[in-house]
């Protein structure tokens, strides 16, 4: 029972961390970034490089975030910027980018599954239940990500500008906000977050060039049902992630893998605002 509750909470934490970058980019740039899976993969392989170089596994996180931000900067400048007015085309172009990233990684690292070193090994006892320490650490990490985003949005000038762009872009531009700059920084930040999430999830599984795709679809669904709000995203991750854990444990892992997609699609049909207040 306790293990199940912990599974639900840690799964929700992982889903939240993975989807946060996508949510921010959708909120400010109004485009769905299908290269999100590619950025997750970059994060995973950053962790792999850190492992191969023999550095401390803790360094994987800053390295991954940095790698994601640099890639994000390049991608924003050359691919995203020309597609601001064509959101459906942006989906396709970023999907193409995901393919490019996957193939580049395959060429450099090979297509086989590889493993990275985990910074926290072992298990601990939580109210009499032995549980993986790393999964518990992920709750802290997700909370830190959420706090970081909230602080950036609410306590910095850029965050204020980003919120203005989210609410009403033409008006924000009219007030002298350089929305192009806000978009650029947001995209880099979102890409960095995605890579960080990629590095966070790798110790749980393994890295391979297509590791991002299954995460992409779930993250995408969660973001759509949370109508650009971090609190709604947390609620959606907990509700749908919880449903996934329950279905996987009691019905079948295969159907469990579909839970988020199916529930989110049905939820959007019944209530288009999803978990948001709308």
């Amino acid at each position: 029972m306790i293990a199940l509750a912990l599974d639900i909470i840690t799964t929700a934490a992982i889903l939240f961390a993975v989807a946060a970058g996508l949510l921010i980019i959708l909120g400010v740039l109004k485009i769905v970034n299908f290269a999100h899976g590619g950025f997750l993969t970059i994060g995973g392989y950053s962790a792999l490089v850190v492992t191969q170089l023999g550095w401390s596994p803790w360094l994987a996180y800053p390295v991954a975030a940095l790698a994601g931000m640099v890639m994000g900067a390049v991608v924003e400048r050359f691919v995203i910027r020309p597609l601001y007015d064509r959101p459906l085309d942006a989906i396709l172009a970023t999907w193409g980018l995901g393919i490019i990233i996957g193939q580049l990684i395959t060429i450099i690292f090979g297509r086989e599954i590889q493993f990275v070193q985990t910074p926290i090994a072992g298990a601990t006892s939580v109210i009499g239940e032995t549980y993986s320490l790393y999964r518990l650490f992920l709750i802290v990490a997700a909370a830190a990500v959420a706090a970081g985003i909230a602080a950036l949005l609410n306590a910095t000038r850029l965050g204020l500008e980003a919120r203005a762009v989210i609410m009403n872009e033409p008006l924000a531009r009219g007030l002298g906000i350089n929305s192009g700059h806000v978009r650029f920084v947001t995209f880099c930040f979102g890409a960095g977050l995605a890579s960080l999430a990629g590095a966070l999830i790798t110790p749980l599984s393994s890295v391979d060039p297509n590791m991002g795709v299954p995460w992409l679809v779930n993250a995408f669904m969660l973001v759509l049902v949370s109508s650009v709000s971090l609190t709604s995203l947390a609620a959606a991750a907990l509700a749908l992630g919880g449903a996934q854990v329950l279905v996987s444990s009691f019905v079948s892992p295969v159907i469990g893998g579909l839970t988020i997609v199916v529930l989110a699609a049905l939820l959007l049909r019944i209530r288009p605002a999803g978990f948001g207040r709308g």
């Binding site: 691919v79 085309d89 396709l92 172009a93 193409g96 980018l97 393919i99 490019i100 193939q103």
Partner: peptide, 20 residues
């Protein structure tokens, strides 16, 4: 194999951006 997929992916992105 991988280079070809890379080329297709790159052309695809290029076409979407430049020749919608």
């Amino acid at each position: 194999p991988f280079v070809w997929k890379l080329i297709i992916g790159s052309i695809f992105v290029l076409v979407i951006v430049a020749l919608p």
